[in-house]
Structure formats: structure tokens, C-alpha cells
Design a protein around this nucleic acid. Sequence first.
DNA 1: ACGAGGTCCTGCGAGC
DNA 2: TGCTCGCAGGACCTCG
Length: 274
Amino acid sequence: MPELPEVETIVRDIRPALLGRRIDRVSLSHDDVLRGVSRRRLVQGLKGATVREVFRRAKHAVLDLGERRLVVQPGMTGSLIVHDRRLTSDERRYAVLRAALDDGRELVYRDVRRLGTLLLLDTPGWNRYTGAIGPEPLDAGFTPRQLAAALARSRQAVKKVIMDQKYLAGVGNIYANEALFAAGIDPSKPAASLRSDDHVRLHAEIRRILLAAIGSNGTTVRDYRTGTGEQGSFQLELLVYGREGAPCRRCGTRLAGTHAIDGRITVFCHRCQS
DNA sequence: ACGAGGTCCTGCGAGC
DNA sequence: TGCTCGCAGGACCTCG
């Protein structure tokens, strides 16, 4: 599922097509993707609204509609695409939210597993939502010190902490694995046991990898698509994720895999990460 | 506060 | 071929 680079790619793709557009018609196939908003209020809130801005927060895409903001959390299998022609039957399949735009195009939120979520927030709701999420790793203000402060408080595994959205925004399982490998840090190490040179390396590698992944339009393992429906290509650059049992690209050691941290697959090199 | 584990969903690939 | 099982990029919840 989309992590920061994937959602950033989606937002960059769909933003030009959405800015200034009015939403004319809305349809929703399932209510179970809604949180904190009823079907009626969602449809009423979107219909007739004009898209003022489109941006990303953490792993979520946000449409600023003036009075309210639509937050799309794609979860594991969600995609957000602006179509400029009739949808194929394949594209209609699993389309959860369809919003017809005033220029004839259509914004479609598609989600096979429907673990994704749609929120429609007023200003106080938005403030609560964004206030509960940690710093954006690609912001200029994100420093090794800021990362260190988040890690210092926790004895949990460093991988779990950097994936925890309240400490750091946008890093999910793929990029956590990759950044820890690149920084030479054992994912199971207690966060508070990292030293300042670890903070500097991890900070740099998180940013470097996220930027590189954005440059490749994200990582397509299975479902992820860009805002124009294409696959990303960063899967070709992954050094550890998905390579359990294969030789480490740096030293040739067989990569280890475990589900011991937060029940998510962790792949690492015993020799290069300590 | 923490860690472990379950829940929401569906599809796919492995193994029998 | 056809079945069952385990697993999958996230986020949120409860329990002890």
C-alpha cells in the first residue's frame, strides 16, 4: 500500500486535473470506507464543492474543498486516479468513490480490500487529525535532532517507532526496511538505544530513500498505481524488502526475514545491520 | 504506557 | 484441476 512516496506521486499526478474543478456528481459503492461521516453527509459535502488545493499529509491525500477537507487514506490497496475517458469494466470494478468533475473527467477512488478510509473534516476536525500525526520527514524543518527526540522516548524496536505515524509521518513497512538497511541499523534495536551518529545516518537515509522513491513514482508490489494509472518503478531498486533469503547486495550474506516486529515482515542483513 | 494480538476486507500464490 | 491456507504496502482497537 501506498506509503509517502506513492501518495506524493498520486497527489502530483492528480493535482493539475483537480485544481479549480467542481464536483458535479458523486457515487459511493460501500459505506464501510467512511469514518466519522455518514454516506449522506459525504455526498452532500462533495457535491457542488470546488477543489481549492490538493496535497499530501503522511500517507494520505487531501482535497481542500474550502469549508471542508476530504482525506483519502488509501490503506493497503487504495488508488486515486483521474480518468479522462469512460472507465473500463476493470476500472469500474472495486471503484468505491466516483466523483464526476465539471470538465467531464472523473476522480475515482478504487480499493480492492477496502481497508482504506475516507474522512470529511471541518477545520477543528482537520486540526485534530493533522495534530495527531508526527513531522513530515521531507520538510526542511525535520532534523536528526527531531528524529532523535522521537526515538529517545521509546524502548520499542526502532522499526516500529519510525513506522508509527504519531512519531514520524509517511514511513511504512517497505521504506522502514530499506532505510534501516541503508543506515546499517538492526530493525529490532530498541529505539532509545540509538546513538547520535545512528540518528544522523537514519535521518539521512529515510530522506534519501523517500526522495529516490518519489523520483521513481513509487513502489508497485501489486496494487499501487500512480494518479494516472501507471505502475511505479522503485520496486526495481529495493535492496531488502521482498528479498528474504536472497544474498545481501552489499556483503552477500543471506538476508533474514522475521515477523517479530509488529507482525509485519522485516527483512535485514545480520552482518550489515547492528 | 507498552506489547501482543485481533479486526476491518479481498485476492493471490503456494502447497496438497 | 481445485481446494484450503497464509499472507499482503495501513490504521485502529482491546486486553493484560
